[in-house]
Design a protein around this nucleic acid. Structure first.
Lengths: 221, 221
DNA sequence: GGTTGTGAACAAATTCACAGCG
DNA sequence: CGCTGTGAATTTGTTCACAACC
């Protein structure tokens, strides 16, 4: 059944990173009962400019109507299809320290199609505990956990020292996408997608601009 | 006292975002007793390529030695000066839910020069609680808290509905740098630096590439 | 010889500006 | 007339490649 597949342009990385933002804004609009939206309005909701919105959306196809805007429902449907929202991707969180526990308790993942399927640690005082409805399992069982739980994404919330090893184990267990919260560089083989979130680093970037705008603040009082 | 200020090139944003990564790698090297490092080695530690390292470092000045590499200690000193590590910038965390509490307990901020100076919420069951040595204060007192605590950075860890209001209050209280964890767009006036971290969004980006590489996975069993 | 520092070439991303169409 | 869609222009970022230098 040869359905007419959309053009399949190659979507630039910068655009991919913004699509979920538009998706979120569109979802809000729909919930507010809004039927159509212009690139300008959507831009404002997403915190970017209108030209960028139009360019980004154009990679998905020509789903707008000139003189009118975009139909919220329809655009959202196309966007969900492109982002693959239809399928849920199970997540395993490795490392049940403060951050890992907070992530496990964070409702936002499941809501957006990424159900937390398993929690893992190595600490005997943590293994067996129940966090947000999941029993914490041991890292040694990772391969099983990933295989049986249909886990597709691994989150590293371990201390720095453990991060690379955990990444290796995740890859060995068949995980192809990793989100690393440990403030260190981890290397993964070709074909595995890695993203990182470094909380303190974000503050350092903010700090740089403060320092830059007022370079003598250090001297004050 | 007209000291010889360094050249003050304008450092590109992309470079600014990588400097803290190099800084971290250099700190590890120093702790390991390593005296000099080549751009190639540093690149590997930071997870980028050597040309980028050299270009990035060149914005700080010419601190390497041809044929040898960079003196770790000296480069680190220069980098810390540029990043403004000398001064500590106090942080207030607004929103003491799971994430806010985890951030409050996260040691990494203080270690890197961003001591958590205050915790804030509006929920009567949370105000007055002690988290990681800080008594949670009420949002109504934000202006005082920021002023007296010499707070320079605000972290928003509230639900979506509260985020914009909190941002406004932070700006009103004199905060010039904001890190937003609420999964929504917030607007700030010119002159205020805003960065965002959206945890579920990172998963969505990872999910996009999985979906893209195996677009029919949804159909599988 | 080995490695930096940097112009020049290239690539990616953003913004402009306007033709095209509803 | 209004707003999209998109080529073209511009800006930003990356990589190359090699002269300069230790």
């Amino acid at each position: 059944m040869m359905s007419s597949v959309p053009p399949r342009r190659r979507i630039p990385e910068a655009t991919v990173a913004r699509l979920p933002v538009y998706q979120r804004s569109l979802t809000e609009l729909r919930e507010g009962g809004v039927a159509t939206v212009s690139s300008e309005q959507l831009a404002d909701l997403a915190g970017v400019n209108a030209a960028k919105v139009r360019k980004d959306l154009s990679y998905l196809g020509s789903y707008g109507t000139r003189g009118v805007g975009y139909e919220v429902e329809y655009l959202l449907f196309q966007m969900n299809r492109e982002l693959g929202l239809s399928q849920d991707l199970g997540v395993v969180i490795v490392g049940m320290g403060n951050l890992g526990q907070a992530l496990a308790n964070y409702g936002g993942f499941g809501e957006r199609g990424f159900p937390v399927g398993a929690l893992v640690d190595t600490d005997a005082t943590k293994v067996g505990n129940v966090v947000h409805g999941h029993t914490v399992q041991h890292l040694d069982d990772l391969e099983d956990i990933v295989g049986k739980g249909r886990i597709r994404i691994g989150i590293i919330a371990t201390p720095v020292e453990a991060a690379q090893n955990v990444a290796d184990l995740l890859v060995g267990a068949g995980v192809e996408s990793i989100l690393n919260f440990a403030p260190t560089t981890v290397h993964v083989p070709e074909g595995v997608t890695l993203r990182k979130v470094d909380l303190a680093l974000e503050l350092q970037i903010l700090g740089f601009y403060q320092h830059r705008d007022a370079p003598d603040a250090a001297v004050e009082a």
